Amino acid sequence: MERSLFSAIFLLLGSLLFTCTRQNDTIDIRNYYFPLKELEEGMVYEYAFVGNDSIAPDYWYYRSLIQDGKKYLTSTLYRAGDLSPQIHAREVMVKNGMLLEEITFYEQDTTGKPEQLLVPVKIVAGNVYPFYVNNPGGIFLTRLEWTWKQDTLDKTVLIKNRRFGGITTVEVEGKKYDAVKFGMKEAIETHKNGILAPPPYPGDETYAKGIGRVHYRKFVGNGVMEYKLAKRYPMAELEKKFKEMQ
């Protein structure tokens, strides 16, 4: 499996000038998630790999929509080389957060043609982002289960635990923003001739007010996989960039 798809699956799913609403020790962090109103026309978020310019960025395309009176956010991760999709997901807004409603992974087959890998992904727990948190707060769980299309005996389970890590500030595109941070632990289990369950990987992610996710990283052994938001632009610009690379 490619590095970017592998990392994306794991990574799927006080005195500061911070304007949040507190009621009964609850912090309202709705405005730190992706701005659904501004994403109605869609926007590419280009995340640069930190520490190694030779590694291609992650290109995520976010777009919101309203259907049957519900608000949704769709996201697609595109392969840097040929702009073929690797992951596509849809979240639905509920009163206390965003829930993962469906997700599909893609992989190149032996001929190089993009092919849907898993049908379907079972969403056991689909907590993506809470609108209200306490500090310290509880754990928000995402758990996905699937069977690889090329190996129907290989069941995989992804478990991601998020915990609110506090308020902070970040610099994005040359400007400072108020932000919220989450600590994470991610684990992936392989069920084939027994259960292979390596220790969970620690990590964290940061969401800036009015922008959404601007930073994410995972510590694997002695290494780190870290991405930071570098640019935002319409899909037409990404398509132009792809044509220029041909």
Rank of each mutant, 00 (worst) to 15 (best):
L118R: 09
E40Q: 14
D151Q: 11
F34S: 04
N96S: 08
W148S: 03
A80M: 03
D28G: 08
F164P: 06
I159M: 10
A89G: 02
Q23K: 12
P114Y: 03
P85S: 10
G166S: 04
L99G: 02
Y45M: 11
E101G: 09
R163P: 00
E91Y: 10
Y62S: 00
W146M: 05
K71A: 06
N96Q: 02
L141N: 01
T110H: 13
F131H: 12
G166C: 05
G166P: 06
D53C: 02
V44E: 05
I55T: 09
D28M: 09
T21E: 15
V157Q: 08
T74S: 12
K149E: 12
F105M: 11
F164D: 03
T168G: 00
T110Y: 13
G69S: 04
P35S: 07
D68I: 00
E102A: 14
N31G: 07
Y59A: 01
P57Q: 09
P57Y: 09
K160Q: 14
A80G: 05
N127L: 09
K71F: 02
P136R: 07
E40C: 03
Y129K: 04
K71Q: 11
R162A: 13
Y47R: 09
E38H: 06
E115N: 08
Y45G: 07
R90G: 00
Y47Q: 11
V157K: 07
T110W: 14
T147G: 00
V128A: 13
D68M: 01
S64F: 01
R163S: 13
V157F: 07
G166I: 04
